[in-house]
């Protein structure tokens, strides 16, 4: 994320952390459409998607005090929350039941402290770049990643669905994510550790 974007997020998080409802509104205005698109992609039902989005924004608002912008962007945090709640809704389970990444875990992951690549390109560029990266994957690798991310399928469930050995699924998923990382880094959407 650009310095300006990171600063804006830092200010927004500071306001969220003290319970500022106007800051929540600003967060929604910034990311609500993307969050809703993600929730819809996962649950496929407008009513459930609305519930997911509302819960996710409220959760981020409540927990903003735990957010450290040096460890990741506000957008990634929010979207991870939306995704996790959407998958929970889709699969009819309580949060964390299957050990999904929660807010705290996401923030504990290493991230580039000096350079968040997202905000340095436009939203359209980002979208095109991610789509290009996905299009370049072999279909079975892309399918594995999408089944896990958007449908919450485990390795075993994907193996059964695709009728391939478990080891094949693991290999496909790792290859897919490594290729995505590499391609998007080359587009300025990533930086290597």
């Amino acid at each position: 994320m650009s310095g300006e974007g990171r600063e804006a997020d830092t200010r927004l998080v500071a306001d969220l952390a003290v319970g500022d409802v106007a800051a929540l509104a600003a967060l929604y205005d910034r990311y609500g459409a993307l969050a809703y698109a993600l929730a819809m992609r996962v649950v496929g039902d407008p009513g459930k998607a609305e519930d997911v989005v509302q819960e996710a924004f409220l959760n981020v608002w409540r927990k903003a005090g735990t957010f450290d912008p040096a460890r990741g962007s506000l957008r990634s945090w929010l979207l991870a929350t939306v995704r996790n709640r959407a998958v929970d809704s889709l699969r009819g389970r309580a949060g964390r039941e299957r050990g999904e990444l929660g807010l705290e875990e996401i923030l504990e992951l290493p991230a580039s402290p000096a350079h968040d690549p997202w905000a340095e390109v436009s939203r359209a560029f980002e979208r095109d770049a991610v789509r290009e990266a996905l299009d370049r994957l072999p279909s079975e690798q892309r399918q594995s990643v999408e089944l896990a991310y958007y449908a919450g399928y485990t390795y075993r469930e994907i193996a059964e669905s695709e009728r391939v050995p478990l080891s094949t699924v693991k290999g496909r998923m790792r290859l897919a994510l490594e290729k995505l990382h590499s391609y998007l880094a080359g587009k300025g959407l990533h930086d290597d550790l």
Partner: peptide
């Protein structure tokens, strides 16, 4: 770290979708 960043970028492929107008109001 590498794979997490790749995974976190996945939803950016999506076209933002306009949520129902009253969602914002209900949230707030």
């Amino acid at each position: 770290g590498r794979l997490q960043r790749a995974a976190s970028l996945l939803p950016l492929e999506l076209e933002p979708a306009e949520a129902p107008a009253d969602l914002r109001e209900r949230l707030l």
